[in-house]
Design a binder for these strands. Structure first.
Lengths: 196, 196
DNA sequence: CGGCAGTTTGAATATTATCAAGGGATGTGG
DNA sequence: CCACATCCCTTGATAATATTCAAACTGCCG
């Protein structure tokens, strides 16, 4: 019961647009470990691609219940014949996602465990605000510590200890199992290595 | 004398196509460290983008002497009016690069230092072969250990020690300061965590 | 020759992973 | 309703991995 809706290696046939809920895109290693490439929230697309390949290079898993729009890959491709400007839209989608992945690479490559976690929380909150425009900010941080570990290149145990440390210094709260930033600006500065 | 030809933060005005030579794309952290996002070799584009932004999100540095083709961003944008199919080409360029970055994220997130280095060498060799089609394979691995460190999220010292370890077990050679794979298939298996 | 960029090494330290175990909440079948 | 399983979180101890610091060596070039 892995709630995958895209399986790595499967032929490409659909593009998904998330209406509500959370998901993530991941790649599998040969030994079964997974690296989460990015998290997807309402407004994000999954599966947009111009390159023919044997099958999906990644998998996608639902984290919560999900409402999605689905476009068959065939009609996606066909659409460019009639409305070539759509290609630019699609390219923008790919590019936006690529920028996210680049930022994840910087975080995983250069930041400490605590900074990475801070970065992820801030990034999720910012994207939630941009996409859903709730002035309240993010109500529920929907990921488990295991998700965080798989996304940030850390072990589950170390994620847990780092979260407690962040909580201890007052950068985050954990209420009812849910992570919340206390002061997002401060958390962001911390993730950028400035003293808090 | 940093040989940057794209400066982070500068307004976008040009797209580069590399004819010959090596370069890399990087992001700066606030404390001055840099994360190399990807290496670029002949046939690779730098600066292709559909999203308006205040300035380049990354910098690009020449590693060797470089021959490049340059297209102004204005004419790049204009071209889509006349030849909308070009948008698909450009999107493919962005997507291909995004795939590289995803693979780097997996390597940095999940592999040991030695495996990361092996992965990078194999990746560079493969792309060289695909782009330049020299049956000889890569003559010169053009990067310094510092470049490798900045690309893989490792310290210079650790890169050095890992390289010697790879040399010791016969996975690579270092001749005249140049790194070369001994057996690329074996190196690839090693980077994937299978016993060599 | 002197300087510079790149590489190499050892020692001490810090960060992170692994192993092992247990706790709390939730759900399901008997 | 209880017994059991499962998933997620938590903690401590130990080991592996990587960083930092300091120093020195190399080849090359002006």
């Amino acid at each position: 019961m892995s709630s995958d809706f895209i399986e790595p290696g499967q032929p490409i046939h659909k593009i998904y647009l998330i209406y509500s809920g959370w998901a993530f895109r991941y790649r599998l290693l040969r030994d079964g470990r997974k690296q989460i490439i990015n998290f997807a929230l309402p407004g994000d697309y999954l599966g947009v691609s111009f390159s023919q390949s044997d099958g999906m290079r990644f998998g996608a898993t639902a984290v919560t219940d999900l409402e999605v729009g689905i476009v068959s890959y065939a009609s996606f491709t066909r659409a460019f014949g009639e409305r070539p400007d759509l290609a630019i839209q699609a390219a923008s989608v790919i590019e936006r996602e690529a920028i996210l992945v680049e930022e994840a690479l910087v975080a995983v490559g250069k930041l400490t465990a605590r900074q990475r976690i801070a970065w992820l929380i801030v990034d999720i909150c910012r994207r939630w605000r941009d996409a859903v425009a709730s002035e309240d900010g993010l109500q529920d941080f929907p990921f488990t510590q295991n998700h965080i570990a798989d996304a940030l290149g850390l072990s589950l145990v170390h994620v847990n200890k780092s979260l407690r440390a962040l909580k201890l210094v007052g950068l985050i709260k954990i209420e009812g199992g849910k992570i919340r930033p206390v002061d997002e600006a401060r958390l962001m500065r911390f993730s950028e290595g400035q003293h808090v």
